[in-house]
């Protein structure tokens, strides 16, 4: 089972993503954006990792979305192969029209706006730990295949543009109705409070991750690859060795591929 971790100029999470892939029992390699894109077909699944592809020039993810490798990725996704976009990877999938899946650009991941008590308290880049609530049923998406509905997971975020917005009327409700909202930011008891610091970036209805209608393409702003070992979670040094919550995303991908074969 081979996973391609796609690297663009400016990607900076490819190595830890590869560690996570291998730790979840899959084989993988870093696939540079300028390799012959036909070689992408040899893989069973794909991860577009985090970073700052093309230095976020113009807007996050848009330049990478025009690369030939993305056209091939769309074709592979149309075959049902799993694709997970993490942080900048999510932004690239949105700009390429792969999420939420109409082929059009139906969403934007705009600049973070942190609101508390009706006031904007902060804007722009933010990094910190968040709690995610799994919103959907098990098996709904390739990256949440093994998660129970309502499961809570701690994962870090690190981005300036994760504020999910849309100009398409009714789209957010449609995503919720179709169980395409996979993760929401919530507090430690699982309540999606729509203000900072629970909603870390001002995202519409606390949305942290969505999938396409078929469930084989998932995008999420938090970084599961930075939470695959328990010792990575805060506070430092106080947890016994073992798997972290982020590993479930990669193990879900492996299981998704196993049952899709």
């Amino acid at each position: 089972m081979r996973i391609a971790v796609i690297q663009f100029p400016g990607t900076n999470c490819e190595h830890e993503t590869l560690v996570a892939v291998r730790d979840a029992g899959m084989d993988g390699e870093i696939f540079r954006w300028n390799r012959p894109e036909q070689e992408l077909s040899e893989f069973d699944g794909y991860i577009v990792p985090g970073g700052f592809s093309y230095q976020d020039r113009l807007r996050a993810g848009v330049i990478a979305s025009k690369e030939p490798v993305m056209a091939t990725l769309k074709e592979e996704a149309a075959e049902g192969k799993p694709v997970i976009g993490i942080c900048n990877g999510f932004q690239i999938l949105v700009e390429s029209g792969m999420l939420p899946g109409s082929g059009e650009i139906d969403l934007a991941l705009a600049q973070n706006v942190m609101v508390k008590g009706g006031r904007i308290v902060r804007r722009g880049y933010y990094c910190g730990w968040t709690t995610l609530r799994h919103e959907s049923l098990p098996r709904r998406s390739c990256g949440s295949f093994l998660l129970d509905g309502g499961a809570l997971l701690q994962m870090p975020i690190a981005h300036a543009e994760g504020n999910l917005v849309t100009a398409k009327e009714g789209l957010i409700q449609e995503l919720a109705d179709e169980d395409q909202v996979i993760f929401r930011y919530c507090n430690s008891s699982g309540t999606a409070v729509d203000e900072f610091p629970v909603n870390v970036n001002g995202s519409t209805e606390n949305i942290a991750g969505i999938c396409n209608p078929e469930g084989n393409v998932l995008g999420m702003m938090p970084h599961p690859e930075r939470a695959i070992f328990s010792w990575q979670l805060p506070p430092p040094g106080r947890r016994p060795p073992g798997p972290g919550p982020g590993r479930m995303v990669f193990e879900s991908m492996r299981r998704f591929i196993e049952v899709s074969r």
Binding site: V62, K66, E95, I105, D106, A108, V165, T166, A167
Partner: peptide
């Protein structure tokens, strides 16, 4: 096709 994302620009 490139300069804007119509959901914010």
């Amino acid at each position: 096709k490139l300069l804007i994302n119509p959901n914010k620009d």
